[in-house]
Amino acid sequence: MATGGRRGAAAAPLLVAVAALLLGAAGHLYPGEVCPGMDIRNNLTRLHELENCSVIEGHLQILLMFKTRPEDFRDLSFPKLIMITDYLLLFRVYGLESLKDLFPNLTVIRGSRLFFNYALVIFEMVHLKELGLYNLMNITRGSVRIEKNNELCYLATIDWSRILDSVEDNYIVLNKDDNEECGDICPGTAKGKTNCPATVINGQFVERCWTHSHCQKVCPTICKSHGCTAEGLCCHSECLGNCSQPDDPTKCVACRNFYLDGRCVETCPPPYYHFQDWRCVNFSFCQDLHHKCKNSRRQGCHQYVIHNNKCIPECPSGYTMNSSNLLCTPCLGPCPKVCHLLEGEKTIDSVTSAQELRGCTVINGSLIINIRGGNNLAAELEANLGLIEEISGYLKIRRSYALVSLSFFRKLRLIRGETLEIGNYSFYALDNQNLRQLWDWSKHNLTITQGKLFFHYNPKLCLSEIHKMEEVSGTKGRQERNDIALKTNGDQASCENELLKFSYIRTSFDKI
């Protein structure tokens, strides 16, 4: 039985969820670079991206490699990797027998973001014989899940209580170790020597080791999670996991709180800001991140802002960003909400898709409305799209047979046209069989910064309504002859009103 693990408890099935942008060198404390989270699957090609990484700022997932063999891993080693800020997950990587050479110096898994409450997941690794993470000293947050690894031993010899604050939620089941077939031998045991430290858990006094050649490092209890030197002297209180010299914040392997210019500090002093819960960055760093993602459509890219001495992905609820200094300031009234469309555009074809934009005031991208039916549609669209004030790209209304009016965009005031449909149009209306009105132009103002209007096959939309939009939106004169079809717009509506004058002759039985 794995020490510190839980057996036999019912657990939810383990679901495996399925960018080499360097964020800056980590400095003297770390020998390499800070790398983003990685999802490495199918083959070993991307694994080489770990070569210079000291910190993975995010998670590391290595999974679904069915053609790899043990010899493929023999020359692979990433000794610079010290810390993973989120979680480490391995799933069905064939041929991998140990992690001792792959990650010989991995010391800390912070667990800032977890995989279903777990910071370390080893699942269905069919050839893994031992973990071998002999320098792993601290899992700051989260638990361990090690399950269905039929060859995995050296679990009962690990004292997880020396690595985690609590072992109650560890789930370590259905491994070879369960069948008591392992016969784990710690260093020196074969020669009758006791080389590794022994600890007591559940009444068992057991030597602690990761492999037959690597003991588990056990520091004096007084050192807590700070770690200790090879001689057993406690590291500085700002260290986490390990250090090369005692009581020196510049000799830590990793930091308990924050890293700044080669030393570990309790908090980031001005003019620095907390970033990702582990390091200090200056304003320029946060500003660069903001600008890199301002026009990016890459998933996970955030326009970072500053709030409460932190550089964070977005302002919290009730705050909006001051564009001059990136500071989050309290909103006066309802907060603006910028919604970034991942692929640059979004099609609204149902109430469900409209709900995804609920509360958005600025759309960074283009909207395509293609709704053919739905219950209580006008009210639903207004509830979900009615706060949109600005669209950076274009607005396209296409084959939306259920629409009679666009009044559900009740606050839309600006279409920038930074991206144009077919390279020309910022407003595009095609084949809307029941569209009769755009907006009530006596109450609604709309500016279209650039781009043209396109109207074709809107049989109940009168040309007068379209011409009014040209005047109000500032697009009059931009359109070419064929942009607004004269014969297919309003051709099934009563669009022309003329005053009919009647004269009559009164007659009676005795007068003409």
Score class of each variant (00 low, 15 high):
189 T>I: 12
217 K>N: 15
174 L>F: 05
286 C>M: 01
119 A>K: 01
123 F>S: 15
42 N>I: 04
40 I>N: 01
226 H>S: 07
35 C>K: 00
34 V>G: 09
316 P>K: 03
45 T>I: 09
211 T>G: 01
123 F>Y: 09
210 W>N: 04
46 R>C: 14
224 K>A: 08
162 R>N: 14
122 I>W: 00
121 V>W: 05
82 I>P: 00
336 P>K: 06
42 N>T: 12
81 L>Y: 00
48 H>E: 15
102 L>W: 09
85 T>M: 06
112 S>T: 12
46 R>T: 05
103 F>Y: 01
143 S>E: 07
193 K>N: 11
38 M>A: 05
138 N>G: 09
38 M>C: 03
263 R>G: 00
166 S>Y: 09
147 E>F: 13
238 E>I: 01
228 C>T: 02
260 L>Q: 01
335 C>P: 07
190 A>L: 10
293 C>Q: 01
100 K>E: 14
335 C>S: 06
271 P>V: 03
197 P>F: 07
180 E>F: 07
28 H>V: 07
155 L>T: 11
125 M>S: 05
129 K>F: 10
212 H>D: 15
39 D>P: 00
83 M>S: 03
284 S>T: 09
42 N>H: 08
74 R>S: 07
245 Q>R: 13
170 N>V: 10
287 Q>S: 15
68 T>D: 12
154 Y>P: 14
299 Q>T: 06
75 D>A: 04
146 I>D: 01
234 C>H: 01
258 F>A: 06
179 N>H: 11
120 L>G: 00
318 G>P: 01
69 R>I: 07
255 C>R: 00
87 Y>L: 00
306 I>T: 04
35 C>L: 00
278 W>P: 02
63 L>M: 09
236 H>G: 07
216 Q>R: 12
263 R>Y: 00
235 C>K: 00
196 C>L: 13
328 C>W: 00
30 Y>L: 14
126 V>L: 15
235 C>W: 01
329 T>C: 04
258 F>M: 09
206 V>L: 14
331 C>G: 03
46 R>E: 06
66 F>G: 09
223 C>G: 02
185 I>G: 14
189 T>S: 10
105 N>T: 03
250 T>R: 02
295 N>K: 15
262 G>D: 01
288 D>M: 15
187 P>S: 08
153 C>E: 03
230 A>S: 14
148 K>R: 15
159 D>I: 08
219 C>L: 03
57 E>R: 03
141 R>L: 06
308 N>L: 07
144 V>G: 02
203 G>Y: 08
304 Y>A: 03
200 V>T: 10
239 C>M: 00
314 E>Q: 04
247 D>R: 10
223 C>M: 02
279 R>C: 02
82 I>Y: 14
198 A>D: 11
201 I>P: 14
297 R>M: 09
282 N>Q: 07
236 H>W: 01
305 V>K: 08
202 N>V: 04
259 Y>P: 00
161 S>W: 04
233 L>S: 12
199 T>P: 08
332 L>I: 05
335 C>G: 05
140 T>E: 08
177 D>I: 15
316 P>A: 03
130 E>T: 04
261 D>V: 01
270 P>F: 05
40 I>F: 03
47 L>S: 08
104 P>M: 01
236 H>T: 02
260 L>S: 02
271 P>T: 05
217 K>R: 12
277 D>Y: 13
285 F>T: 11
73 F>I: 13
304 Y>H: 03
76 L>V: 05
91 F>R: 04
279 R>S: 06
91 F>C: 01
156 A>E: 03
279 R>G: 14
280 C>D: 00
31 P>T: 11
278 W>I: 06
138 N>V: 03
208 R>P: 14
252 C>L: 00
313 P>W: 12
252 C>Q: 00
276 Q>H: 02
128 L>G: 01
117 N>P: 04
245 Q>M: 09
309 N>S: 08
214 H>K: 01
131 L>S: 03
210 W>Y: 14
69 R>Q: 12
202 N>Y: 11
175 N>D: 15
157 T>E: 14
298 R>Q: 03
34 V>P: 06
212 H>L: 14
241 G>R: 07
137 M>V: 10
326 L>S: 04
57 E>S: 09
305 V>M: 07
201 I>Y: 13
146 I>H: 00
186 C>A: 10
128 L>I: 08
255 C>H: 01
177 D>R: 10
273 Y>E: 01
119 A>I: 00
184 D>S: 11
182 C>D: 15
231 E>S: 06
240 L>N: 13
296 S>A: 12
139 I>N: 01
264 C>I: 00
146 I>T: 01
96 L>W: 02
326 L>F: 15
58 G>R: 00
326 L>C: 03
220 P>N: 06
32 G>W: 05
280 C>F: 01
336 P>L: 07
273 Y>S: 04
268 C>G: 00
182 C>P: 14
238 E>N: 11
301 C>R: 05
332 L>F: 15
153 C>I: 01
235 C>N: 01
257 N>T: 07
111 G>Q: 00
286 C>R: 00
194 T>P: 11
198 A>C: 09
309 N>W: 08
183 G>R: 07
149 N>M: 01
247 D>H: 15
64 L>V: 09
202 N>G: 11
317 S>F: 15
108 V>N: 15
260 L>W: 02
180 E>R: 12
235 C>G: 01
192 G>H: 13
95 G>S: 05
285 F>D: 04
156 A>D: 00
216 Q>A: 15
78 F>E: 00
307 H>K: 03
44 L>K: 07
116 F>P: 01
127 H>Y: 03
107 T>I: 15
329 T>R: 13
53 C>F: 00
160 W>N: 01
42 N>K: 06
110 R>S: 07
297 R>L: 06
259 Y>H: 11
202 N>S: 12
208 R>Q: 15
51 E>I: 10
152 L>S: 03
109 I>C: 00
139 I>D: 01
248 D>Q: 05
320 T>A: 08
328 C>K: 00
335 C>L: 03
169 D>I: 10
248 D>T: 02
179 N>M: 06
68 T>G: 09
303 Q>E: 14
249 P>C: 02
184 D>N: 09
268 C>T: 00
104 P>H: 00
291 H>R: 08
134 Y>M: 13
309 N>Q: 08
